[in-house]
Amino acid sequence: MSDLRAELSETIDEAEWEWLIPHVQRDAVILISLDLNLLDVGEAIASDNISSVQQWIDQQLITKPSVDQVGEWNGDRQKRFNTLIIQPYVLVQEIAV
Results as ranks from 00 to 15, higher is better:
Ile57Lys: 11
Ile62Gly: 02
Ile30Ala: 06
Pro22Cys: 01
Ile45Thr: 08
Trp19Asn: 13
Val24Ile: 04
Asp35Ile: 00
Leu4Cys: 13
Lys79Gln: 15
Ser2Thr: 10
Trp56Asp: 10
Leu8Ala: 07
Ile86Asp: 05
Arg5Thr: 11
Thr63Arg: 13
Met1Asn: 14
Val67Cys: 03
Glu7Tyr: 11
Val24Phe: 09
Gln55Trp: 06
Ser52Cys: 03
Gln55Ala: 14
Ser47Gly: 11
Pro88Val: 01
Leu20Lys: 00
Ala46Gln: 15
Gly71Phe: 04
Asp48Tyr: 10
Ala6Gly: 04
Leu39Met: 10
Ser66Pro: 02
Ala28Ser: 13
Phe81Val: 00
Asn37Glu: 15
His23Asp: 10
Trp19Gln: 15
Ile12Trp: 06
Glu16Phe: 02
Asp35Cys: 00
Leu39Ala: 06
Asp40Ser: 09
Ala46Met: 13
Arg77Phe: 05
Leu20Tyr: 06
Val92Cys: 06
Asp35Gly: 06
Thr11Phe: 12
Arg80Trp: 01
Glu16Val: 09
Asn49Phe: 03
Glu94Lys: 09
Trp56Gly: 08
Ala46Pro: 09
Gln59Ile: 00
Leu31Ser: 10
Glu18Cys: 00
Leu4Asn: 14
Ile57Phe: 06
Gln25His: 07
Ile32Leu: 09
Gln78Asn: 09
Glu43Gly: 06
Leu91Tyr: 01
Lys79Arg: 15
Ala6Asp: 15
Thr63Glu: 12
Glu7Ala: 13
Thr63Asp: 05
Ile50Gly: 07
Val67Ser: 13
Ile86Leu: 06
Leu91Glu: 03
Leu31Arg: 14
Gly75Cys: 04
